[in-house]
């Protein structure tokens, strides 16, 4: 039942994108997301789309697989599009009884859809090509300058690693509990929303109890293995920027440059 959930799924591989330093990829995604919201024209989005396609191609991950990430946000995208389409003021395009669609509304709706799509695609490419360990290492490194102002960078990274480690274990356990309760005659499928929510209680309570137990056990096991926070910790795999990262940064600078150009051009010719 829960086997299909693909939380921050990693698609193992050895492509150029896979081998990039996680810090490069995290910063690139931040820049990518920022640029999504700075683009003012369709030309800009065309540039971004071309860049995204190039990234997916060089990651050697099937397009279908990447696009699967869009499915869960579809409803959200449609609602956003409808709101923007009907509720934006401006030059009237269609008027039919109480419904009015404006030129600005159409434009904004398309932009919002594109923004959400690129947002999900960009972050998917990051999580698909970066192992959870590398991702948390990268986040820890990038946050470590903030340690001075009290941001617990190591602890946050450790929490993420442990959460990722226990997601499959807890999903498996949930599955087991559901089966056990179903065998005892529990019904999770029928009834109204409130009844269904009530049916979840016999699943959640044992799950919580077991999760706390696991947390307790894990804390002792970590102490037994001399865990004492991030201080003086060494790593099996140190992060190292390589030649590929230089190229990655160059590609990113090109992307930003082209988007800026597209924005400037928009100011002049309006596409």
């Amino acid at each position: 039942m829960f086997k299909d959930i693909t939380l921050g799924q990693y698609f193992p591989g050895h492509s150029f994108i896979h081998r990039l330093d996680p810090r490069t990829k995290i910063l690139a995604v931040i820049i990518y997301i920022t640029s999504i919201f700075c683009i003012k024209s369709f030309l800009g989005y065309a540039v971004l789309a071309a860049f995204t396609v190039l990234c997916v191609l060089s990651s050697k991950i099937p397009f279908k697989f990447v696009l699967k990430g869009l499915k869960p946000i579809m409803i959200f995208v449609i609602i956003t599009a409808i709101f923007n389409l009907f509720l934006t003021d401006g030059k009237i395009l269609v008027r039919w009884s109480f419904i009015t669609i404006t030129y600005e509304g159409v434009r904004l709706a398309i932009f919002m859809v594109l923004r959400l799509f690129f947002l999900v695609l960009g972050t998917s490419i990051l999580t698909l090509t970066t192992s959870p360990i590398a991702l948390t290492d990268g986040i820890e490194y990038l946050l470590s300058p903030l340690k001075k102002v009290g941001v617990p960078a190591h602890e946050l990274a450790m929490m993420m690693t442990i959460a990722l480690r226990f997601v499959p274990t807890l999903l498996e356990e949930t599955d087991k509990i559901i089966k056990a309760q179903t065998a005892r005659g529990a019904d999770f499928e029928s009834g109204n929303l409130i009844n269904r929510a009530k049916a979840m209680i016999p699943i959640l309570i044992p799950l919580f109890i077991s999760a706390f137990r696991r947390a307790d056990d894990l804390a002792v096991a970590m102490e037994c293995r001399c865990y004492r926070g991030g201080e003086n910790r060494t790593r099996l795999r140190e992060l190292k920027m390589k030649k590929g990262d230089v190229f990655g940064w160059f590609a990113l600078v090109c992307l930003v440059g082209l988007i800026v150009l597209a924005n400037v051009a928009y100011g002049r010719i309006n596409i």
């Binding site: 192992s131 690693t161 480690r165 137990r213 696991r214 894990l218 096991a221 970590m222």
Partner: peptide, 8 residues
Amino acid sequence: DNQLVATI
């Protein structure tokens, strides 16, 4: 299950 910390 309760003593393994990492994902690899």
